[in-house]
Design a protein around this nucleic acid. Sequence first.
DNA 1: TCGATACGCAACAGTACCGTTTCGAAATGG
DNA 2: CCATTTCGAAACGGTACTGTTGCGTATCGA
Lengths: 200, 200
Amino acid sequence: MTIQEPATARPAGRPRSEKAEKAIIDATLDLIGEGTGLVELSIEAIASRAGVGKTTIYRRWSNKEDLVADALATLQAPLPRLAGVSVRDDLIVLLDSMRSEAGQVRTRCVMNIAFSESDRYPRLMERFVDIAVEPRRQAMREVIRRGIASGELRPDIEVEMSMAILSGAMIWHHKWGPADGLPADLAERIVDHLLPGLAA
Amino acid sequence: MTIQEPATARPAGRPRSEKAEKAIIDATLDLIGEGTGLVELSIEAIASRAGVGKTTIYRRWSNKEDLVADALATLQAPLPRLAGVSVRDDLIVLLDSMRSEAGQVRTRCVMNIAFSESDRYPRLMERFVDIAVEPRRQAMREVIRRGIASGELRPDIEVEMSMAILSGAMIWHHKWGPADGLPADLAERIVDHLLPGLAA
DNA sequence: TCGATACGCAACAGTACCGTTTCGAAATGG
DNA sequence: CCATTTCGAAACGGTACTGTTGCGTATCGA
């Protein structure tokens, strides 16, 4: 009976500051967003940016990888709502959400990391893929499958290959396209350029 | 009359060792090929790997960027010969050369750098693009233009967009495809998947 | 032979970050 | 009030690299 709420039992003593925790995560994302690679990203810089002692960081995360993983997990942008009417429209919405996210500094640098440091931080990347990449992949997969089922797309196209082509085109522009933002109608142009080859 | 050959006049004293120079370049490429990013790449590590004093490096290059730029310049892989018969065959050859180069460790890591560190080392990337990317881009551009001229491709396709799609698909696989090497027929599958939409 | 330059090597002071420890102050429950 | 825990700040010893300098040796032209 003395035990009331074991799940929320406070362990006595000063509670951890949620403000500090948020500041640490924000500082981490800020630094990554400014182009700091994972290797150069230092706990000291994060602490300084967050206005926090290093102790406060080490008390919560034992290493850089864990911290960054938690920080990236908070980025989880919402998936766009799909109308589900036409394949063309849905694909455009999906690709255009890639485009607009690519315009944000944070996403941009997270993508850089996903490209360059996947070899060095495999566990981190695995987690990042689960959180950010796979849901989008799944959404696009379903759009294409639905298109095949409805007869809008040829039944003999390879689903995964089509996804690779659509995403690849957007990634290519993201990386080597005009530096001053991608054109607003890019997603539309990509889809319309590809659809004739995929349509039934 | 005393001046004989100003261009090749040796400045008196011991000449610089070409062997050392080559060893430094090789060590640099080796380290990059092992996944060392530009930031972590240290002059000391290069000197140690090359069996060379740091002095010998600093005497030639005043900073890391210059050294890496010269090192990358030596990579210049030869462009594949194109038959020039059919657009399909030429595109497959071009994409397949991307595939096979992507299998080499050095190229793989150079591409990682091209993706991730282009913001941080813009001059370096500019040079890299001139040396390695632009010639391939130009080759593909000409294949597509020739295809349009010959009537193999629709006259209304956007050349640059088509290039982005073809290259993007290969890059996507390079980055997120199976880790144990890309399938041998990947280039063929990409081209055949896309060509129906581009053909006249 | 002599001057000049390059060589590999080792040492230098300087910088940055690591992960840990210590400090006094602040915040909580009993 | 007191025990406990966290807070920000500062300092610790340790590691790694920076760019520079001096050393003795090797290799060239004159």
